[in-house]
Design a protein around this nucleic acid. Sequence first.
DNA 1: ACCAGGCGTGTTATCGCTAACATCGAGTTC
DNA 2: GAACTCGATGTTAGCGATAACACGCCTGGT
Lengths: 328, 328
Amino acid sequence: MTDVARLAGVSHQTVSRVLNGHPNVREQTRLRVRAAIAELGYRPNKAARALVTGRSQLIGVVAQNSTLYGPASLLAAFEAAAAEAGFAVSVGRVNVLDRNSISDAVERHRDQRVAGIVVIAPTASANDAVGDVSAGIPLVTVDGDPERSTPLVTVDQAAGAFAATTHLLEAGHRTVWHVSGPSDWFDSLGRIRGWRSALETAGLEVPPVVPADWSAASGYRAGQMLARMPEVTAIFAANDHLALGILRAMSERGRRVPHDVSIVGFDDVPEAAYFIPPLTTIRPDFHAVAKETLELLLAQVGDGDVGAPQRTVAPALVKRDSVAPPAQ
Amino acid sequence: MTDVARLAGVSHQTVSRVLNGHPNVREQTRLRVRAAIAELGYRPNKAARALVTGRSQLIGVVAQNSTLYGPASLLAAFEAAAAEAGFAVSVGRVNVLDRNSISDAVERHRDQRVAGIVVIAPTASANDAVGDVSAGIPLVTVDGDPERSTPLVTVDQAAGAFAATTHLLEAGHRTVWHVSGPSDWFDSLGRIRGWRSALETAGLEVPPVVPADWSAASGYRAGQMLARMPEVTAIFAANDHLALGILRAMSERGRRVPHDVSIVGFDDVPEAAYFIPPLTTIRPDFHAVAKETLELLLAQVGDGDVGAPQRTVAPALVKRDSVAPPAQ
DNA sequence: ACCAGGCGTGTTATCGCTAACATCGAGTTC
DNA sequence: GAACTCGATGTTAGCGATAACACGCCTGGT
């Protein structure tokens, strides 16, 4: 920086001012400084800046160490959004979403003087942990508890589930069964809520929830059971991989989809269009979630306080070939 | 830090020595300092350390912005490995793997004074770009060009493809067709090489490569063509999603898998066991790749130079139900 | 006894920036 | 035209750590 200052014939402070877009710099000086920067190929040292300002251009993300489609897509989308806004993203993966791991990860990020922290907290335990650590640093929770009063962005799970269920009902089914995700995930709860609400709105009986985790394996097991029940003609699976497992169980039992059984998934994984048959599903808009998250985070950086705004992003129904009217 | 020093009745330098495990500190002093640290809940400022040492405990990763299973898994595995070794990971996603984006991303990381950089460079263009920037900072390429003489870790694509093809031949097939990934990916080239080599080793004719990208959609298109060719009884798909698309095309044409056509994929995505039928595939060991990558990187941090070691990780064949002897 | 040399510790300088204040000249205001 | 304002710039003082050197003190060899 001193070299640049010398070459441009100004003080290092003026160089700093140019770098930070300070208004009170003469145009001519600005140009001279820029030229010197270019000539020397100078790049500012972010560590020094972080030291003196107490803030780096880094955003910390705490996420569970998994390759589940939802969280992974969210993470990728957020990295892209952050990069566009000039922030680097430091990812702290955590093996279990308990209080200790999460607050550890948050503290590690804080040591790096990150500008803010995003926690992808889809489970109750994660969410509780977030409550403990939120002090003194911009923090946004994604996919967390809608009941909680911290800044939060979520996909509107209930709306998606409502749309999925309604779509099946409109095809003529008497009721819709639901194979659910793990019960400690807010995503699961929201999807159950939307499904139940759609059935109740239509004045229909609500069958028991069929519990599963997110895996195709558990969907397969659930499907083996459902395939044996002739009264089951419509299933809303809590995600596409569950749906895949169900599809296989149906196929093994000779129950044709969608002729005998209709299925709707959730997530719209890229390969869902190539399941047998192509899967009707709900597509969450991860880019929108990422964008809202970043906005909420940057708002906190700016003002210090924006209350506790919560934003939800509505997902869309994607119609393919796994839904048909029930056989007579 | 000054507060800690005062509380422990030592100088700040001694605190620093305790923090860094310097040998020449009396045991009693060390304990006193540790007690003071604990009491005050002191945590060192990484930005300050990065400034004075010129190195942070951060590793930069440059990866393409995609949710493709391979790269995404690699990234997750690397983050886990790095976290275990006490490093944070800053991810710089890039939309296209060309020279500009990559060297930009690398420079941004360099500005953060990262300890080292990992580039996931599965395409030729990415690989060329890496050549330009490697100066002056530990850098490891993952999934890059095996021909290149930079530090590199890759999955042994050719060995996996060889195993897949041989497995099909051993089931009794006369030859094996290959649906390949994009031709600018080293992964594709390696898989083609292994497949070809297995056929040539067995003294068999090599059918033309069926080109595709990595998507289920393109696998479906390739499958539509192959399904029309009765002489095709065995297919090695360059990844599992291609295989999924092929499965659907076969199913639509009434060609049964594995009775009429056998298929082997590559990647072992979690849901591959729930395709119809469960897919025989090749499982790369991403954790091993991550571990080797980190080792190679840290070796460079230590010595400054470790030559240009290259490591490959052998993948494993996972047998399921998509391979059978050809119909008579 | 004396001195070299290690050990434990403190002192000072420094990393590369930004914040805060100081300075200085050129209008403006009355 | 004296005082005041303000814009453009320079000067100085940190941010919180580590590096390098300095300094006693103890030990052991001669």
